[in-house]
Simulated assay, not measured.
Amino acid sequence: MLTLIKGADVFAPSPLGTQDVLIAGGKIVDIQPEITIDTYQRITTVDGTHCILAPGFVDSLVHITGGGGEAGFASRTPEMNLTDATLHGTTTVIAALGTDSSSRTHSNLIAKAKELKELGLNVFCHSGSYHLPAKTLTGSVTSDLMYIDEFIGVGEVAISDHRSSQPTVQQLAELAAEAKVAGMLSGKKGTVSIHVGPVDTHLSLLHEVDKLTDISLAQFYPTHMNRNIDLLNAGVEFCKAGGTIDFTTSTTEYDLAHGEYSAAHALAYCLENKVDPTKLTMSSDGHASLPIFDKSYNLLGLEVGKESTLHGSFVEAVQKYNVSIEHALMAITSNPAQILGINKGVIKQSADADLVLLNKTTLAPTECWSKGVHMVSKGNALVKGAFE
């Protein structure tokens, strides 16, 4: 079967202008201003006029098995469903454990990843969790990355947070070194995802690793960098020193009222401060627990992250903060894919056919393909999980 998308304004994520895009066998076969096919094979033609065709979104932090609730067992968050991603243009997710690596396990994480992959989503995973020493599936980070296809890195390891294991420079350096070598041996990036909390030590631990060892800042991928202006400014300096940073699109009204920047605002702020656009990403933290703490770390409330906020923050960046469509898309497509070392997030010949068609006026997703499978049509899910 062939699918021909006609006359869309293509962002790859760099702008390519009005193009026809032909997909077959799960791949992008051709991109031309005009494609005409004379064949007896069955062809599905999709009208892309008045639309933007973009790479399927890459969500670099999702808790697909749910998160452990900081308010006890009854507050454990649920697992994500396939359409939590696809209805909002996301075709690739990177899954991780968080605070809870006891009731949430790597065997559960991999099983859920395989479920979502069977349904058509692209899913990768991180070994480890918040705490060190790292918990693993096979007994070591090296074996996880080398022998389990889904594992591509480690994390999210918590720093500058009262919930972390308070890792030392040596512990973090040893973990990053193991992940890097394991990545080299398995053809993976071995990126270390870093959960950054609200404590004012910010990214100092990562700078210490960079200063005292052979591990560079580029090995780390700190997230939640939009918690407050001080952390955001620390992120600007981190990028200019060679690192990359990620902003969390799921948030709460309480946090926004108490100094947190929205991910879209943080993206715009960094671009205004001359940060290289390739060093900035956004992720949803979908299905994570979002605890609300006061200044003494007393729990005030608890909400749940949503994968849909990734698309919402893209729209907010473009429509409210005047970020270019190219730079806003880079933050949720090619940038996270490159940082994590996965072949996703671009539109080019022979690339996987992970695509989302957006209404040019509203930027709402109308069509979505994952590995060439038509997942969403006219805003409605064509493929669902067994229990959705």
Results as ranks from 00 to 15, higher is better:
residue 2 L to A: 14
residue 2 L to C: 11
residue 3 T to Y: 08
residue 9 D to C: 08
residue 17 G to R: 06
residue 21 V to Q: 03
residue 22 L to A: 07
residue 25 G to P: 08
residue 25 G to M: 08
residue 30 D to R: 15
residue 32 Q to L: 07
residue 32 Q to S: 09
residue 36 T to P: 05
residue 37 I to M: 06
residue 41 Q to W: 12
residue 42 R to T: 15
residue 47 D to A: 13
residue 50 H to Y: 12
residue 51 C to L: 10
residue 52 I to N: 14
residue 54 A to W: 10
residue 56 G to N: 11
residue 57 F to S: 07
residue 58 V to L: 08
residue 59 D to M: 03
residue 60 S to E: 11
residue 62 V to G: 00
residue 63 H to F: 01
residue 68 G to Q: 00
residue 72 G to F: 12
residue 79 E to K: 09
residue 79 E to R: 07
residue 83 T to Q: 08
residue 87 L to F: 11
residue 92 T to C: 07
residue 92 T to Q: 01
residue 94 I to P: 01
residue 96 A to K: 00
residue 100 D to I: 09
residue 102 S to M: 13
residue 102 S to I: 15
residue 105 T to P: 04
residue 107 S to G: 15
residue 107 S to I: 15
residue 115 E to Q: 15
residue 115 E to R: 12
residue 116 L to A: 04
residue 116 L to K: 02
residue 116 L to G: 01
residue 119 L to W: 10
residue 121 L to Q: 03
residue 126 H to V: 03
residue 131 H to R: 02
residue 133 P to H: 02
residue 135 K to L: 14
residue 140 S to T: 11
residue 141 V to W: 09
residue 144 D to G: 03
residue 146 M to I: 14
residue 150 E to V: 06
residue 152 I to T: 03
residue 153 G to K: 01
residue 157 V to Y: 00
residue 159 I to T: 03
residue 165 S to I: 04
residue 168 T to H: 00
residue 172 L to W: 03
residue 178 E to Q: 14
residue 180 K to D: 15
residue 188 K to L: 04
residue 192 V to A: 13
residue 193 S to F: 09
residue 193 S to Y: 09
residue 202 H to Q: 13
residue 208 E to I: 03
residue 208 E to M: 06
residue 208 E to Y: 04
residue 209 V to A: 14
residue 213 T to W: 04
residue 215 I to S: 01
residue 216 S to M: 12
residue 216 S to L: 10
residue 221 Y to D: 08
residue 226 N to C: 12
residue 227 R to T: 01
residue 229 I to N: 11
residue 235 G to A: 02
residue 237 E to Y: 06
residue 239 C to H: 04
residue 240 K to P: 06
residue 241 A to F: 09
residue 242 G to C: 11
residue 245 I to N: 00
residue 247 F to D: 03
residue 247 F to Q: 02
residue 248 T to V: 05
residue 253 E to G: 14
residue 255 D to M: 12
residue 262 S to D: 12
residue 264 A to Q: 04
residue 266 A to H: 00
residue 268 A to K: 11
residue 274 K to W: 05
residue 275 V to G: 01
residue 275 V to I: 09
residue 281 T to A: 14
residue 285 D to A: 11
residue 285 D to W: 09
residue 288 A to F: 10
residue 289 S to D: 00
residue 290 L to N: 06
residue 292 I to C: 12
residue 296 S to D: 15
residue 297 Y to L: 11
residue 299 L to G: 05
residue 304 V to N: 03
residue 305 G to M: 07
residue 316 E to P: 02
residue 319 Q to S: 12
residue 320 K to S: 15
residue 320 K to C: 14
residue 322 N to W: 00
residue 324 S to P: 02
residue 326 E to L: 08
residue 327 H to G: 07
residue 328 A to T: 05
residue 329 L to Y: 04
residue 337 A to T: 04
residue 338 Q to S: 10
residue 338 Q to R: 13
residue 345 G to F: 06
residue 346 V to K: 09
residue 351 A to S: 05
residue 353 A to D: 08
residue 355 L to M: 05
residue 356 V to Y: 06
residue 356 V to H: 12
residue 358 L to R: 05
residue 360 K to I: 15
residue 362 T to V: 03
residue 364 A to Y: 12
residue 365 P to E: 01
residue 369 W to I: 13
residue 375 M to V: 03
residue 377 S to Q: 01
residue 378 K to P: 01
residue 382 L to W: 03
residue 383 V to D: 05
